[in-house]
Amino acid sequence: MSYLVDILVSASFWAAVIRIASPLVLATMGELICERAGVLNLGIEGIMVIGAFTGWLAVYQGLPLWGGVGVAMAAGMLFGLLHATLTVPFGLSQHVVGLGVTLLATSTSSFAYRLALPEVTSPPKIVPFQPLDLPVLSDLPFLGEVLFTQTAFTWFAFAIAVLVSVILFRTPLGLAIRAAGENPSAVEAQGLSVSGLRMGAVIVGSGLMAMGGAFLTLSAFSSFFFEMVNGRGWICVALVVFGAWMPGKAVLGAILFAAFDALQIRLQQTPIGADLPYQVFLMAPYVLSILALILMSRRAEVPAALMTPYSKGER
């Protein structure tokens, strides 16, 4: 087991954990906002794909990296608007609409990619976000590598998580959003619009999901390829449950999850990796997500009005 210890004490391992967690943190925050307001957003997987694609395409066409992030966010919000329109005022099935949005966003990305680049055989690369080089901090032993040589996008992702937590739990707006997911008629009694709050939450949440997708192309892989999101969206839905709809716990869940993911990649290169088929390691993230859901079953406080459409005047 000595190699396991070697892995766990290495700075490069923990640096990878933070890196792998970043897109999950963004998308999980996006899903958490939607669900706190009472809307399950199963468009997440496709919205991450459209974010990964549009962010990459914008930068490939010459926009600066943060411009790409902005484009991804806008594209995500557009699909969020579609989701919100169908599920909030019309109150259509959040399951069906969410899956429909995922299928539409994914196929739109594939269609547009083929249209933009009909000829290419290998996906073209962009110059991605570079590791930060901070005076003193980046040169610190261990922590320097783990925290201070991440990209600015990673820092941005974790800052967003803090911001989401503050807004949800320290501001009247956050209270209203949470109330829309717990007790919508009380929100209406306060003279606030449940529809407005829910639509806003879904649109903003979808923007965050898309930025999570953009992290993959702009900070991790530097090119876009089909199936790069590979179920990460669904994993984020599981992380929201695992985090009991609390931003802090969800971020810890994302880090824990990323740690297992980083571990499985490294274990493949050890004697265990030689003994087991590599598919077993690749299965780990999905199996872990299911285990996390089982672990949290019956413990978590589900937003009371999650998946319940609301129409004015109904009690």
Partner: peptide
């Protein structure tokens, strides 16, 4: 446990 996510993850 919500079956949407578990059935989706089982696909992978």
């Amino acid at each position: 446990v919500d079956e949407v996510v578990t059935t989706l993850l089982l696909n992978f």
